[in-house]
Write a protein that binds this DNA or RNA. Structure first.
Lengths: 218, 218
DNA sequence: TTGTCAACTGTCAGTGGCTGACATTAGCCT
DNA sequence: AGGCTAATGTCAGCCACTGACAGTTGACAA
């Protein structure tokens, strides 16, 4: 109809684009339904029907119900790792992690918005935190992320992750703190991106004081 | 047949004892089958058949397949909390946690043995660590344990868990370290109770050094 | 001992997540 | 246009899990 590539033709062939559209539509429909009527109360037949594909097709895009729930979260995690990789080698490990938190969230926000409204992502996060089965999956994903972070930190310092325990210990502390902050955020009032960043930073500030012996005579 | 109570009659009525026996038999059968042929390769019909009860009865004892997998683990967690509660109030938070690790494992070992062979428990732990679906559940349980630990620590120090972040930050670090140690243990050679205790203690020693700025000029 | 009650169990039917097999459709390429 | 292949739909089936109902078996009092 138009010339070679009008303007909104980012992907390759028609087939490719169609696939991408179905993929994103399934995510949107699923998250919308999940947040409205609950995770287990939503059947994958409903999701498939909302996008007008067969149930079998849903399972060709996503291995299971959990998979579609965490599709966007996967982008966030990948983005975070990229940002960590980009930190200057001169920074001390904990400093690099801290700066990554400070910087990464803005880019993450826009990346999310290319698939679903950011507000839907926030609602999804809350739903996850209040659904035991999904909390379990979230934690396992965090553990995998943690492993990759440990490898990155070790590489920065020229260490072997399996020989020196410090990288794993450090990221264990770090992501423990991140999770604690995320949990508080998910039940709090302010559900903005700024809020989660500030909360995390504040929690990170407490690492030092927390391991000190006596809390009563600060 | 014998007099009033021969000697191995610990529980109340016959009904009670029978129930206990079925309960334990289901655990044993399940863990045996899981460790031999894999978790998802084992159907609950098989487990029920091994104990000679109906599938429906299995689900009256355990809410789901995961539940039976972590039945023994639940005892371990409860035991750990008890031991932490018993720590003298004078100890600093991290010290109390550290001493609990040092002390608790022996009592835990004998508690486990009252239900299944300790060796089966060890094999089960390894199976859990190598089964993604179960890793997820393990992590969620750890998170719940973590929450209780935070409350205990806060109470010891006369703090409000929701107001002061230090209790949660500390236990987040602590259980992150515990998990890292457990993971290494689960893939290592020595699968003894002593091994996991020593490994954990050694990892705890690295908390201080890990948060120091520069690892390269120790 | 016997009868009643309540707890425990088995059977059956059904839902929902998930998979393999096979036929059909629809973009791609010559 | 026509053949190739990826994407999809349909169907049958497994397994985890649940509600409903009926049968069995300890507990306990008369």
């Amino acid at each position: 109809m138009a010339t070679s590539t009008p303007h909104p033709a980012p992907a390759g062939g028609l087939r490719e684009r169609k696939k991408q559209r179905t993929h994103d539509a399934l995510i949107r429909a699923a998250l919308e339904l999940f947040t409205e009527q609950g995770y287990e109360a939503t059947t994958v037949d409903e999701i498939a029907e909302a996008v007008d594909v067969s149930q079998r097709t849903f399972f060709r895009y996503f291995a299971n119900k959990e998979d579609v729930t965490f599709a966007v979260q996967g982008m966030v995690e990948a983005r975070f790792l990229d940002e960590l990789r980009a930190r200057p080698a001169a920074e001390a490990p904990l400093t690099a992690l801290r700066h990554t938190v400070a910087v990464a969230w803005d880019g993450i926000g826009t990346a999310i918005a290319s698939v679903i409204p950011v507000e839907l992502y926030m609602r999804t996060y809350r739903m996850i935190e209040s659904t035991p089965a999904l909390v379990a999956v979230l934690l396992r994903r965090s553990a995998e992320l943690e492993e990759q972070m440990a490898r990155l930190v070790a590489r920065r310092e020229g260490l072997d992750v399996d020989a020196d325990p410090r990288p794993r210990v450090l990221v264990a502390m770090f992501s423990g703190v991140m999770r604690a902050a995320g949990k508080v955020w998910s039940v709090g009032e302010d559900c903005s991106v700024d809020a989660i960043r500030e909360l995390t930073m504040s929690y990170l500030d407490h690492i030092g004081p927390a391991i000190e012996g006596n809390w009563r005579t600060r």
